[in-house]
């Protein structure tokens, strides 16, 4: 048994991945019109998140149903989780950097987000065993918390519904990582599934933001 609620969480990951790619597409599309460097970072960041989620979800499903008759399914799952964690670290580093550039225009972004993500990337070759994966999850939690903090700052300035969707979206994603980390530490399948659900809720809020921003812009 690899993990309880494995199939459910894999499907949630696949849905979240599709939503992340949709957000990436819109950021890319708007970047083409505006040439905004922030949108470039956002587009690449969400693309990495989307690819990571799709890779993780697909490999988990393949492993669960043993489609490829893998010799060592657990190693495959750890590998997929490791790839997903590295991609997420890079993604939240990019999104966090975008926010940092927004706040400190022209200044170099060498804040806590950068340091934490570099640590995660350097740890990539060592991604074996749950302890390292849990540390990776913790690193991502720090990075997402940084993005949530920046989102809260943006919302406190703007106080509009769109910035609230973005803030809540990232807050749910942060909660999902907390749930998945606690689920792993406490060996709780319920927390793990709750994490996956919070992740999907976060991405859905970001999708609502994308759709609503498109409608507002069309008026």
């Amino acid at each position: 048994m690899i993990h309880p609620y494995f199939i459910e969480n894999s499907i949630l990951s696949l849905f979240s991945g599709v939503v992340a790619l949709a957000v990436s597409y819109y950021a890319f599309r708007y970047r083409r019109v505006t040439g905004s460097s922030f949108l470039r970072l956002l587009s690449v960041g969400f693309m990495l998140l989307g690819v990571g989620l799709l890779v993780q979800g697909s490999i988990y499903l393949l492993a669960e149903f043993n489609v490829g008759r893998f010799v060592d399914r657990e190693a495959l799952v750890y590998g997929a989780t490791g790839v997903y964690l590295v991609l997420q670290s890079a993604a939240y580093l990019l999104i966090g950097t975008g926010y940092t550039i927004r706040v400190q225009r022209g200044a170099s972004s060498d804040g806590m987000g950068t340091g934490a993500a570099v640590l995660a990337v350097q740890a990539a070759p060592l991604l074996f065993g749950t302890l390292v994966l849990d540390i990776g999850e913790l690193v991502i939690l720090v990075l997402v918390s940084f993005v949530v903090f920046q989102g809260a700052m943006a919302y406190s300035e703007l106080k509009n519904r769109l910035s609230l969707y973005v803030l809540l979206g990232f807050a749910f994603i942060a909660l999902s990582h907390l749930g998945e980390l606690l689920g792993s530490l406490l060996a709780s399948g319920d927390l793990y599934l709750l994490g996956g659900t919070a992740n999907l809720a976060g991405f859905c809020l970001l999708l609502v933001f994308v759709v609503r921003s498109g409608r507002i812009g069309s008026v």
Partner: peptide, 20 residues
């Protein structure tokens, strides 16, 4: 169409506190 697209981009960016 360009104006509509820029408005959508403006609306998208504004949620992050960024202006075009």
């Amino acid at each position: 169409e360009f104006v509509s697209e820029v408005r959508r981009a403006q609306s998208f960016l504004s949620a992050f506190g960024v202006s075009i």
